[in-house]
Design a binder for these strands. Structure first.
Lengths: 110, 110
DNA sequence: ATTTAATATTGCAATATTACGATATTGAGT
DNA sequence: ACTCAATATCGTAATATTGCAATATTAAAT
């Protein structure tokens, strides 16, 4: 017990959960926000922006990367991280779909 | 250490993270999916749909409720849970906004 | 009032996450 | 080769999450 029973759920549900989980921490939301607005996307800047130590930021970046929300390319001795549009598109589609289905459905709670 | 430093982040970032975190588990995504398609939304049905024991499902429902993703009204001796459209709208807006900003931006990663 | 069905709460063990100091790696500039 | 700057990894402590058996609660039906 304690471990998520991933194998019992559908791929679709697991995929959404993985992306959502990656955004389930304010530091990671802040990183996405930063990447969305930054001109250049060198990681050192992100460390300065966040109230967290460098290893912690590095760990959060890793999680975003594992989940597929960001991708990084080495650029000299620093790294250019940026948002992976495909992951954002997936989440956008997911919520748009829920929204539309709900609109048609006449929700039956007060 | 080990606790998220919520107080160091903006309300906006914390709000998105809270909603995302609530969806960061396949069981909770499955619950939302079920509520989206179910005619009647009695909790017992959800327990039968999921590969988890009743207390576990109850706990997941509680988390979705705390995060504001679902709301529940007592209906006789069962409970009518349903999706809170406002929370979905918030997430939809969030991802639509990222998507649009990215489209204008010409992402600079390969 | 008792029983039954639906749901919630408690308590606890297993596991995961968060955070960071210390240390490693790696590429650029000297 | 040496140093410096940027980033990653390791190790580990603190905390949170997941899952469930046992138990409690509550409303309907008898």
């Amino acid at each position: 017990m304690g471990a998520t029973k991933t194998e019992h759920f559908t791929n679709k549900h697991n995929a959404i959960a993985t992306l959502a989980k990656a955004l389930g921490h304010p530091a990671r939301v802040a990183i996405i926000d930063y990447l969305l607005h930054a001109e250049n996307c060198i990681c050192g800047d992100i460390v300065n922006e966040l109230p967290l130590a460098q290893p912690t930021v590095s760990q959060h970046l890793k999680e975003l990367k594992n989940a597929g929300l960001i991708k990084g390319s080495i650029e000299g001795n620093s790294i250019c991280y940026c948002i992976d549009e495909k992951a954002i598109a997936k989440m956008k589609t997911y919520f748009v779909h829920i929204s539309m289905t709900l609109a048609k459905k006449k929700n039956n709670c007060y």
